[in-house]
């Protein structure tokens, strides 16, 4: 092992040993990840409260998303996590070429992720599915059937199996009407006698379509904030790349690579939850 001199250049003055600095950096990063988890935690809470109380909105909304693009992006992000982990490994071993290669690969996969997101977003925008006051589904504007409108008289007990011609080949992401996924509604309206009977499934499906803008609010805010984190991660990776090229890291000092890796993996973990919650609703 190479011997660190008494006070190596990368050791800040107020630390006694490199180990103390290393552990302080790690703990600091984990605490930062805690703040990220809670930031997204608020969004997950928003999601959970709405999904628990208005499941029909999510059933209606997820049909506009393309599972195959979402799945593709999940895999892209996982692979980028692998290359990031390999980059950390290369840094620990002092293999500069491998470190640069893996950092570059991670960066490229991140670009891929954003590229796919761009495709998805542009379809949504074309279909007028931006949230809030920009929400104007194409069907209302043009009368065209691009936006799926599940018939309100869908047979409630139809078997869900033939989930219609699922993921259209990439490029045509508008999924067909999920007539079969008859929405389930928790009959929460059935209060002690004073209240009317719970709405039927048809009513619920209709209601889900009416409130589907709520789903897109959640979709865009959650994936948008995640996308911003991906961009921030790319900046960090690029910074690590240039520092590595200047030879800043060595087997005795690779803490920044490790911290950047932790951040990138957290971005991956958040997507691991976003994917099933937004795209895979049954």
């Amino acid at each position: 092992m190479s011997h660190a001199p008494d006070h190596p250049a990368h050791l800040a003055h107020h630390y006694e040993t490199p180990r103390q600095q290393f552990e302080a950096g790690k703990l600091g990063m984990w605490l930062f990840l805690v703040t990220e988890v809670l930031l997204f935690g608020g969004l997950f809470c928003w999601y959970a409260v709405y999904r628990a109380n208005q499941p029909e909105v999510f059933l209606a909304g997820h049909r506009y998303l393309d599972k195959s693009l979402g799945g593709l992006n999940t895999i892209v992000l996982i692979v980028s996590s692998v290359t990031m982990a390999l980059a950390v490994r290369a840094a620990q071993l002092g293999n500069r070429r491998a470190l640069l290669g893996f950092l570059a690969a991670t960066f490229l996969f991140a670009c891929c992720f954003l590229g796919v997101k761009y495709v998805e977003y542009s379809h949504k925008i074309r279909d007028g599915l931006l949230p809030g006051r920009h929400f104007q589904p194409a069907a209302e504007k043009t009368g065209a059937g691009r936006v799926p409108v599940a018939p309100a008289d869908a047979p409630p007990d139809a078997p869900p199996a033939p989930a219609p011609a699922d993921p259209a080949p990439a490029g045509a992401p508008a999924p067909p009407p999920g007539a079969a996924d008859a929405p389930r509604l928790v009959p929460s309206a059935a209060g002690p006698e004073g209240l009317a009977p719970p709405p039927t499934r048809e009513v619920a499906a209709e209601a889900g379509r009416k409130s589907v803008h709520l789903f897109f609010g959640i979709y865009f805010v959650m994936t948008g904030l995640h996308g911003l984190h991906v961009i921030a991660g790319m900046i960090v990776i690029a910074w690590l790349f240039f520092r590595a090229r200047r030879g800043a890291f060595s087997p005795s000092y690779w803490l920044p690579v490790d911290l950047g890796g932790l951040y990138w993996h957290l971005v991956d973990v958040i997507w691991i939850f976003l994917f099933p919650l937004l795209y895979l609703i049954h």
Partner: peptide
């Protein structure tokens, strides 16, 4: 949240 379905308030 008893019933938040628009036009179908109990």
């Amino acid at each position: 949240h008893t019933d938040r379905i628009p036009d179908h308030a109990p």
